[in-house]
């Protein structure tokens, strides 16, 4: 007997604003059954993009957030004992393969290398998943797709993807969109007018100038959206930006002073 987790479909179109040819590239990869690697800084729309593509291709989406305690069994599945019987339960990866879903492994660098190797045969021309426990090879249907993401900006030398993993994927570079497009996203997602959105994006730009000069990362689109949402909820723009952007970016007192100055320059 075996159980497979229920997979749900995205029924409503998620809002996603394309910033380049990523939609066409993704569709081509899907058609050619190639796995995809999304690279980019935090909060630039990777997760949203995958949700959108799952909706567009009408596939169920299975998302796994990777962490360093993730085991192969967590991905593939395990036996449980129910009453007097042993029952096999598919892990999210196996379930996604069987259902021909899109499986999205978020922040793949966080997973241990020995866990990640189970995806290797899935991510090359074999397209199979070995379920050792059951002595089963699950062959991926054409509609199955593997998508992984990571943020190359992290500084730890211990967190990098092995070349043998990396070289199985078609890689897309994500970055913060250009000013006008980003303003559109902030305005729509945050519910603020175009002028406020323009200023928020300006603030984002200024903080990104400081990347590597005191900040590890500039403000992400996500942070700008957060600030917009606070503003839309009635918080004064300066206070909203300080809470949602400046304080969220760093703890250093001097740098916070500078970020406050930048907020004050924009609003």
């Amino acid at each position: 007997m075996s159980l497979s987790p229920e997979l749900s479909r995205i029924t409503e179109e998620p809002y996603y604003q394309p910033t380049g040819d990523e939609v066409a590239l993704f569709e081509a990869s899907y058609a050619r059954r190639l796995p995809v690697l999304l690279k980019g800084p935090t909060g630039c729309g990777k997760t949203r993009f995958v949700e959108y593509m799952a909706w567009r291709l009408a596939r169920p989406l299975v998302t796994v957030a990777c962490h360093d305690d993730l085991t192969t069994a967590d991905l593939v599945g395990r036996y449980l004992i129910v009453g007097n019987e042993t029952v096999w339960v598919d892990g999210p990866l196996t379930a996604a393969v069987r259902a021909g879903a899109i499986c999205y492994l978020d922040e793949i660098v966080e997973a241990r290398k020995d866990t990640i190797v189970v995806i290797h045969p899935l991510a090359d021309s074999r397209r199979v998943l070995a379920v050792d426990k059951r002595g089963e090879m699950v062959i991926a249907p054409d509609s199955f797709m593997l998508v992984v993401s990571y943020n190359p900006g992290y500084q730890s030398v211990l967190k990098e993807i092995k070349p043998s993993t990396r070289q199985r994927f078609v890689a897309f570079d994500f970055d913060y969109p250009e000013a006008a497009v980003e303003a559109g996203i902030v305005s729509r997602e945050g519910g603020v007018d175009a002028e406020t959105a323009r200023r928020l994006v300006k603030l984002g730009e200024l903080t990104r100038n400081l990347k590597g000069a005191g900040l590890d990362e500039g403000a992400s689109t996500r942070l700008l959206v957060h600030a917009a949402q606070l503003i839309a909820a009635g918080i004064a723009p300066q206070a909203a930006c300080i809470a949602a952007v400046a304080r969220a970016l760093c703890d250093d007192a001097d740098m916070n002073g500078t970020l406050d100055d930048l907020v004050a320059a924009v609003f």
Binding site: L206, T207, N209, A213, D254, G257, T258, D261, L262, A265
Partner: peptide, 13 residues
């Protein structure tokens, strides 16, 4: 000086 330098760095391309 330090704070102003960072501020200008933030402003400038």
């Amino acid at each position: 000086e330090a704070r102003l330098t960072r501020f200008i760095h933030g402003l400038s391309g």
